[in-house]
Design a protein around this nucleic acid. Structure first.
Length: 553
DNA sequence: ATTCAGCGCGCC
DNA sequence: AGGGCGCGCTGAAT
């Protein structure tokens, strides 16, 4: 049963599968949805944009089990041959998302109600079109696109719920950590003690006058380093590490601490943590590959340095689960490489590769696989690639073919049918130009570089994008297993609080920890079957029940 | 005064 | 000369 919701001068227009039309006033809408959710077979809500429609419902205490997000599905379908791109599908950041999750509106009133963009078609018409397109599918396996649409939409619900409950965050612990690393919080515009001390240490080592060293300006700093005889082309830390000048060690320390302060220091804490919660906005489908992005607070780049501040409430725990070596397993399943599947039979696929005799060490296995999936052509990874190719020819051929397709300017698809973006007019023109007779050596070289770059992108797209699909299926399964439509509000029962590409975190009352662990494992096993059918590849997850995020792994 | 690209670094 | 991101900062462009 679908219920399509749309805007109406007097409130919300609701259309069901039989064409019955009702209008609910904006004020009554949450109660209307709540009542429908109580039925034995709750509907799938069809709406323009989950990030617009769902937050007001959640604020009224109403959860929704299933939905169809027209905007996200439109973006997926935009990659299907011959379908015109709807303007509103281009918007990857919703109006609500741009507020950074900082606003809190109490109720669902008319002014607050989501409005359809002028250029968006009516929801019912667009839904009918999308359902037909999903059923036709792409050249991927039949049914895959519909599955992808459902998984993407489930993710959209989870994303809004995670923002609404927030990630448990101890501001006290965070401040303690900053005090220990940097010293007391300085006045605005001044360096904390620890950074000031390091700055003078660096100045001394370089023979610079106090305050004369532009430590926070890479181009200026580079000039100063070169003037002091440290021959660097950039000020990247890995470049600096190669030199053994006495200024290097304190400089690296300075950069690391300075980074902590600017990215996750006191200002960050002021801006992003309220009432013991960090509330980033998650942006499903925010990355071309289908990965999520985030908006505000750098949620997907939380440095390990501050993860000890992620702390469960009293009497609660964090259940943290991580899919072990997800991407190589995805590649094994995509390519149906049985030898690689066997290597992944245990929890550690890289060790399995060592045991297969392909390479000598776990580190080599990891480097080699990453190189194969990213298109690395230098160093250790390139060195072991031929060995991997001999033992896992099918897997390596799979990524090579994706790369060749990209180099030819073609698009590639994930397992469920998400399409990579086309390389664009400028890219094509450059390729054509380089292929003409009068093309210069430089033009040919540039076009070759651009082609290889596109090849690395498509090579990675199939793996990263399919891994994102597996993760969505996993998350949807976890959410379904934790689901309780009635009873306690979301924040009083186990709920997802964080998602990081191949990692999920659930905040749960301590006595529910075992249930949650089971749910995380069971959903992972399901996800493999949902995406790949009866492939021999396993997707083990490591699960840890902890009080602080830093204790996991 | 404001916008923007590039750098550098955090995460996967 | 390895894929995908977000963000703070700087310095040049507007």
């Amino acid at each position: 049963m679908h219920l399509i919701v749309d805007h109406h001068p007097e409130g919300m227009l609701v259309t069901d599968d039989r064409g019955t039309v009702e209008v609910a006033s904006a004020a009554d809408f949450p109660a209307y949805v709540a009542q429908r959710e109580q039925s034995a077979d709750p509907p799938r809500w069809v709406w323009s944009d989950t990030a617009l429609w769902y937050p007001p419902l959640l604020r009224s205490g109403v959860r929704v089990e299933r939905c169809h997000d027209l905007r996200l599905v439109e973006a997926i379908l935009a990659g299907v041959e011959g379908r015109p791109v709807r303007p509103f599908a281009d918007r990857t950041r919703s109006v609500v998302a741009s507020s950074g999750g900082r606003q809190e509106t109490a109720l669902f009133d008319l002014d607050d109600a989501p409005r359809r963009a002028d250029n968006a078609p009516p929801a019912a018409a667009l839904h009918a079109e999308q359902v037909a397109a999903l059923a036709r599918g792409s050249d991927a396996a039949p049914g895959s696109l519909a599955l992808l649409a459902a998984a993407e939409s489930a993710g959209a619900l989870a994303a809004v719920e995670m923002t609404s409950t927030g990630l448990p965050w101890s501001a006290d612990d965070h401040e303690r950590l900053l005090l220990e690393a940097l010293g007391p919080r300085p006045e605005a515009g001044r360096r904390p003690d620890r950074l000031a001390a390091l700055a003078s240490e660096i100045e001394q080592a370089l023979g610079a006058r106090p305050g004369a060293l532009p430590l926070d300006s890479p181009p200026e700093l580079m000039k100063s380093l070169r003037a002091a005889g440290i021959d660097v082309a950039t000020t990247r830390s890995w470049e600096l590490q190669k030199h053994s000048h006495p200024a290097i060690a304190p400089l690296l320390r300075y950069k690391s601490l300075s980074r902590l302060m600017t990215a996750n220091g006191w200002n960050w804490l002021d801006e992003w943590v309220r009432d013991g919660r960090f509330r980033p906005t998650f942006v499903p489908g925010g990355v071309v590959t289908g990965r999520w992005a985030s908006d505000g607070g750098g949620a997907l780049q939380l440095p390990r340095q501050v993860r000890s501040a992620v702390r469960a409430d009293e009497g609660w725990v964090l259940v943290v689960a991580d899919a072990a070596q997800l991407e190589p397993r995805i590649l094994a399943a995509l390519s149906r490489d049985e030898a690689m599947a066997r290597a992944g039979a245990g929890v550690d696929l890289y060790q399995g590769i060592v045991d297969s005799g392909a390479v000598a060490s776990r580190e080599q296995a990891k480097l080699g696989m990453l190189g194969a999936m990213y298109g690395g052509t230098t160093g250790q990874s390139a060195l072991v690639l031929p060995r991997l190719q001999r033992v896992f020819p099918q897997a390596i051929r799979f990524v090579e073919e994706a790369a060749r397709a990209g180099e030819r300017g073609e698009t590639v698809r994930t397992r469920l049918g998400r399409t990579s973006p086309s390389p664009g007019e400028a890219w094509r023109e450059r390729q054509l130009l380089a292929a003409t007779e009068g093309a210069s050596e430089a033009e040919r070289r540039d076009s070759r570089t651009a082609a290889r770059s596109q090849g690395r992108f498509t090579r990675n797209f199939v793996v990263q994008g399919t891994a994102a699909e597996w993760a969505l299926a996993w998350m949807a399964g976890v959410r379904r297993r934790l689901w309780r439509a009635e009873g306690a509000p979301l924040h009083r029962q186990p709920h997802l609080v964080f998602f990081l590409h191949d990692e999920l975190m659930v905040h749960a009352p301590r006595e529910r920890a075992e249930d949650v662990e089971d749910a995380l494992r069971a959903a992972a096993a399901d996800a493999g079957r949902v995406i790949f059918g009866r492939a021999p590849v396993t997707f083990p997850v490591t699960v840890a029940t902890v009080e602080r995020y830093s204790e996991a792994k």
